[in-house]
Amino acid sequence: MRIALLAPLPPEQNDIADYAEAWSQAMRVGGVDVSTPLRGQTLSPYPLLLARQMQKVDWGAVDLVHAELGGGNEFLALEWLAENHPDLPLTATAHDPERLVWRPMRLPGPLALAERLPRPLYLMAALLADPLLLARERSLAARLSRLVSLTAGGAQCLAQKMRLPSGRVLHIAHGNQPLPAEPLPPVHPLKLLYFGFISRGKGIEDLLRALAILGRTRPRLPVELKLTLAGGAVLGRAGSDLERLKEHARRLGLSESMLEWRLNVPIGQVPRLVQSHHALALPCRASPKSAWLGRRRGGHGVLSWAAACGRSVVSSDAFVQAEEVSRGYGAVYPQGDCQALARELGRLLDEPQLLAERGERAADLGRERAWPRIAEQFRQVFEPLRRSRAE
Rank of each mutant, 00 (worst) to 15 (best):
A4M: 10
L5N: 13
L6T: 04
L9W: 09
P10E: 10
P11E: 03
A17K: 00
D18Q: 06
A20M: 10
W23M: 08
V29H: 09
G31P: 11
V34I: 06
V34W: 00
T36I: 08
L38V: 07
G40S: 05
R52Y: 01
Q53H: 12
A67K: 00
E68T: 04
N84C: 06
L88K: 00
P89G: 06
P89R: 08
V101G: 01
R103S: 11
P104I: 10
P110K: 12
L111C: 08
L121N: 08
D130Q: 13
D130V: 07
R146C: 05
T151S: 11
A155G: 13
Q156E: 15
L158Q: 05
L164K: 08
S166V: 09
S166F: 06
S166Y: 08
I172P: 02
G175E: 03
Q177P: 04
Q177F: 04
P180R: 03
A181P: 11
A181N: 07
L192V: 12
L193C: 10
R200Q: 13
I204P: 04
I204Q: 01
D206F: 02
D206G: 13
R218V: 15
R218N: 12
R220H: 11
L229C: 10
L229K: 07
G231K: 02
A238D: 07
R244T: 12
R244H: 09
L252A: 05
G253N: 14
L254M: 04
E256M: 04
W261P: 03
L263H: 08
H277K: 14
H278E: 01
P283W: 00
P288Q: 11
L293Y: 06
G294E: 02
H300T: 10
H300K: 10
A307E: 14
R311G: 10
S315W: 00
S316M: 01
E324H: 06
G328K: 07
Y333K: 04
E344Y: 08
E351L: 12
L355Y: 00
G359Y: 00
E360I: 00
A362H: 15
A363L: 11
R369P: 03
F382T: 05
E383D: 14
